[in-house]
């Protein structure tokens, strides 16, 4: 059987809210090491990769590997019934066709359980090579959210260029043009307020703003976001979820004809 208990149920709620617009369905692959998900959007332009470690849960048991096919809008409907302070336990028998979600209030005086019907999903996994990136930028996740939201109101695509001057986001549209540059800045005392640019070589790539804006739905999960860029490769937008694991979004670049 599979059983996973997380005291901060709100994390699970935020995670599903971050994913559900981007991917309609996907497999929760559970094993003794934790829970993983790899899912592409319907147009195969972006991919969500989620990895939650077994030791990040208060309790984790998985007797045999399973792929649990989840419809995220449906999971979201159930998780909306959980309180923000609730502890959430996920449970499934081996080869089950349902996932049980149990919500316990913090003072244990309210306990509810919901069964989510599982789906059979043929998922296509992509091999993502571990690699060095030309530029890795850590910045406050709220800053990333603001930049992509602001630029989405001006244009459809953004040119992201990383140089030793900083990281520049540029767009243009019917109303005009916009440029936002962030400089390497380690002045703030709190690490989560710093902008750290680790540059191996200058790089510039163009992306659809709609997706980058969608990734920012993960902002409530983490104070810092990391962007990784290499010429002619998808960008990685990564949020570390405390000690529990990470969610990474990959977006294919726009390519010149």
């Amino acid at each position: 059987m599979f059983e996973a208990r997380i005291t901060q149920g709100a994390v699970l709620k935020k995670l599903v809210e971050a994913l559900k617009e981007l991917v309609t369905e996907g497999n929760f692959d559970v094993s003794s090491t934790g829970l993983q998900l790899q899912a592409m959007d319907s147009s195969h332009v972006c991919l969500v990769s989620l990895a939650l470690r077994e030791d990040g849960f208060e309790h984790f048991r998985c007797d045999r590997n399973m792929a649990m096919g989840i419809h995220f809008q449906n999971l979201s409907k159930i998780l909306k019934c959980a309180g923000n302070e609730d502890t959430i336990t996920l449970k499934a028998e081996d080869n089950a066709d349902q996932l049980t979600l149990m919500f316990e209030s913090s003072n244990q005086d309210r306990i509810s359980d919901f069964d989510l019907k599982l789906m059979s999903i043929e998922s296509e996994h992509l091999g993502i090579p571990d690699q060095e990136y030309s530029a890795e930028i850590k910045m406050p996740s709220s800053e990333y959210q603001r930049i992509v939201r602001d630029l989405t109101s001006i244009g459809d695509t953004v040119l992201i260029s990383a140089t030793k001057e900083g990281i520049k986001f540029s767009t243009s549209g019917d109303v005009g043009t916009a440029n936002v540059t962030l400089r390497h800045n380690t002045t703030p005392e709190k690490p989560e307020e710093q902008t750290i640019i680790d540059l191996k070589e200058p790089v510039a790539l163009t992306f659809a703003l709609r997706y980058l804006n969608n990734f920012a739905k993960a902002t409530p999960l983490a104070p810092v976001v990391k962007l990784s860029l290499t010429k002619d490769l998808p960008i990685v937008v990564e949020y570390q979820i405390g000690e529990l694991g990470a969610v990474k979004f990959y977006l294919a670049p726009k390519i010149d004809d």
């Binding site: 195969h44 332009v45 991919l47 992509l126 091999g127 998808p234 390519i255 004809d257």
Partner: peptide
């Protein structure tokens, strides 16, 4: 005008 790349052009299917 730039075309939107698809992930399969960058990553291999397993």
């Amino acid at each position: 005008k730039a075309n939107q790349g698809r992930l399969e052009s960058f990553f291999t299917s397993l």
